[in-house]
Write a protein that binds this DNA or RNA. Structure first.
Lengths: 253, 253
DNA sequence: TATTTACATTGATCCTGATCAATAGAGTGA
DNA sequence: TCACTCTATTGATCAGGATCAATGTAAATA
């Protein structure tokens, strides 16, 4: 049944049922839900996460108000979650990459409270939530790991709140770049060179500043030799000083 | 060793074991963890939440780095959770009142990532977390309710992020007051008249603005007939227009 | 009750980042 | 390949809110 007769079969399988690719063999298992699970337990999780969903750039995973059924683990790709303010202005609550789980906001009300959209072609693992809760009741390690993930989300949000409430534009942008850097590094990519998947406006919507300020600040960083930017391509050239900028240390000036 | 020959027995009991007051008879059971539990299940939760802790104004529940053992449900009183930025500046991540649960940030790393302090004399229910996870494995309704509470915390944080990232000072303060109003109302208190438990500086640290701006904006609201302030005492006089201010609607001006 | 300390208000000035606007470059589709 | 659209850069100006500073008021402590 597996990848036997070449292209045909598995291609079809993939589209119809999703490609069967176990958590146990997923390169992200050290970042995702399976952390700390024994082989037998991981099998049970595998059986639960049957479907993989291919998302095209610009495609929505869910929208505000959608009935809640699944959590989504990101296998590959890049997403943003966002809400619209009363005046229609977009506010981005997070950028999400492989190994992260989105949709947890919906648990509380049984409806999504934000929108999630792919910023590049991506793949998701669909996790049926009632079944996940069921499995959590049987596998303490999974239960605890799930609680940790929700808690981590809370901590992450607190970090953003501090950033928005207490930092100025330069500091925010430095923090943002360093955060991306660190997350790419954790996934085995370069910590110093990467492509921004989002526009300047989106960075602004996330960091609470205007796109012009994002652009200007990037230019300024470049002039100071902290990095080079070329459209979406960024190369961080001085992580130390970038940290100093983030922390408002004199020495960075 | 305690204050023994004085304030009789029940005082001693209270200090040693905490006063035995069941979740089932708690006036907050419709806001807190027991929502939706059957009587028999509530008993089991009762047995888990044995200790009540009396907190004096200014006393800390936990501090950054403290090893994680308990979640805390607020029975009475008022708390703030805060973190300190690199430069020592305080950032407040939340104000918390009766029926709310604090400490969930610590699940992820087994250590608290923020500080929690009582802003007035208060009472807490101490919930031993490993035991709570155990009970969640046995009582699906409790499990789901706990997940809902964590999810609600995430939604709450997203709201603050939008506020900090997309609103101006006036709007933030209006949103803050209306949020307090709504939460007091949900607890059976007046929606229009209440005491602020926190200083102007603390409001500022929460809303990402300076205490002078908080003060000025309150004065402005008062001049516009939206409310009256007298130190910590606030009376909201026009909830409708306050909403309009929050949403930046023309008609409010 | 007096004294001290913490908290709040108000004014004057300055600066960061928003806004308005024009141009240029990159990506996309016919 | 061209045309169109989306995205990014840069400049000029403006305003919201920070900062500095002084005074007033409430609350805690001796």
């Amino acid at each position: 049944m597996d990848a036997q007769n070449q292209q045909p079969l598995n291609k079809i399988m993939m589209n119809v049922n999703g490609l069967k690719q176990a958590c146990s063999s997923c390169s992200l298992r050290e970042l995702c839900l399976p952390i700390g699970l024994e082989a037998s337990d991981m099998d049970r999780l595998d059986r639960l996460v049957t479907r993989r969903k291919h998302m095209q750039r610009g495609e929505h995973v869910f929208r505000v108000g959608a009935p809640f059924q699944f959590l989504f683990a990101i296998r590959t790709g890049f997403f943003k979650t966002y809400e619209l303010q009363e005046d229609g202005q977009e506010h981005i609550t997070g950028f999400h990459m492989a190994g992260e789980i989105i949709g947890m906001d919906a648990i509380s009300t049984d409806h999504n409270t934000c929108n999630a959209v792919a910023l590049e072609d991506s793949e998701l693992c669909e996790i049926p939530f009632p079944q996940l809760e069921g499995l959590c009741r049987e596998i303490p390690a999974l239960q605890h790991q799930f609680h940790k993930l929700m808690s981590r989300e809370i901590i992450r949000d607190h970090g953003i709140m501090m950033l928005l409430g207490g930092m100025r534009a330069e500091e925010r942008l430095a923090a943002f770049l360093l955060n991306l850097s660190q997350r790419y590094a954790a996934r085995g990519y370069s910590a110093t060179e990467f492509h921004l998947r989002m526009t300047r406006a989106e960075i602004g919507h996330y960091l609470g500043m205007k796109l012009e300020t994002v652009s200007r600040t990037l230019t300024k960083f470049q002039e100071q030799g902290l990095l080079t930017v070329n459209n979406k391509h960024v190369e961080l050239q001085d992580l130390v000083r970038l940290h100093q900028v983030m922390n408002r240390e004199e020495s960075a000036l």
